[in-house]
Design a protein around this nucleic acid. Sequence first.
DNA 1: TTAATAGTGTCTCTGAGACACTATGTG
DNA 2: CACATAGTGTCTCAGAGACACTATTAA
Lengths: 242, 242
Amino acid sequence: MTRSPDEQAFLDAYDPTAFERPSVTVDVVLLTVLDGDLHVLLIRRDEHPCKGCWSLPGGFIRMTESLDEAAARVLNDKAHLQGVYAEQLYTFGAPRRDPRTRVLSVAYVALVNAARLRPVEDDRIRLALLHVDWQGETGGPASASWHGQLLALAFDHADILGLAVKRLRGKLDYAPVGFELLPERFTLRDLQSVHETILGRKLNKDSFRRRMLASGRLSAVGEREEDADHRPAALYTFERSA
Amino acid sequence: MTRSPDEQAFLDAYDPTAFERPSVTVDVVLLTVLDGDLHVLLIRRDEHPCKGCWSLPGGFIRMTESLDEAAARVLNDKAHLQGVYAEQLYTFGAPRRDPRTRVLSVAYVALVNAARLRPVEDDRIRLALLHVDWQGETGGPASASWHGQLLALAFDHADILGLAVKRLRGKLDYAPVGFELLPERFTLRDLQSVHETILGRKLNKDSFRRRMLASGRLSAVGEREEDADHRPAALYTFERSA
DNA sequence: TTAATAGTGTCTCTGAGACACTATGTG
DNA sequence: CACATAGTGTCTCAGAGACACTATTAA
């Protein structure tokens, strides 16, 4: 490489392949906690390629919408959800990740309380159980199953799922993200259970309580849970202003 | 919104704007530490739009290369650098961030020791001093100057710069990233200085030493620095295997 | 010798884990 | 009553900051 930067820039401008445009999709990893396990919303592909495989809800980016807006649109179209927490995860761009043509995928992670999600399911849409083979933030692909049967995932969506879990585990330490998976009012035990589900390990009850109460993000509702068959716990709300 | 998910998916497939393709560039925030300050490589735009502004080195993605490969290509073309640490940062996609047409930018952060970078400079390429107005990981745009003069940044590149610094500050706690900005052999003081430059604040010497030595990622070379006008410090190397 | 920085030893403070104990609900 | 879970108080242990002290170089 002995070309000067100027020369090289000139050549770049005339490279015929430089301006061919890839397709760009936004794919959303919509996660929820159901019965103490992480679940993800998947959609069955009814067309080639990967016909019959299960894929993340997604769609091609439109020319007038931002990436965040595209993610919100996908959530609205595929799961009838509005105002859900969603953040950009990573952009996947291996040249042959889609066999048809060059497709970049801007992946998002979205979190929602399971109660808002259940009525949506139909035969093409499943809330699949998520399996993570690795500990901590090691990273790697994840798999998904439904009623005990492993679902074949389309394209590189297993990698996207894995990265979503890795990111979520990392954020849990310093960002108020567990609340997004809970209803408006919840007990400390509910919150700890969500954290344990995401992290894939048990947490110390005492220090979890201390940490959460010291964070200043919880405010006590002043009421207690009902229909518990033991001493009812105090209800808290997430304080978004803090 | 009363359409079923099936109907909506059907409509999506026939939306005429859904398959119009955006342009996609890869833009690289190439950071280095020079004289105790963060610097960034910028390139002057000689064409409209933003003629005369300074922009991050970047280029349009090609159909046969991955995103990581595109970032490596940009680094090679614009700064004659190979094998430099680079990782994907975020994808910027506001609809009007480029006035010509829809352009998505997949931003990367790259780190390099300043000694590898200095000979590259010509009039169109500058190693600009980076200014960060906020503390910690607050976030926000950053600005750049050269010989005391503020440089006008193209497009949303001030936001990209700011996010790069925010990400870097966050990673410093748990990832071995300071080494990328140092030569092969360095002293603990060098390493601390790099950390302080990135974080924008002084660190405690004692606990920094302990933390670094306890991390198991440093191995003592067995030699000491030369031409110091005081007691010379031991030299260390980064242990990539650990 | 002095000035400057490298490097060590130790005290304290803080936060997490562990555990004992009390409180309050159901059956 | 027994039993289960909520919630409190306190001990211990590990890591970070603070600081005193010694070591080693140049001038």
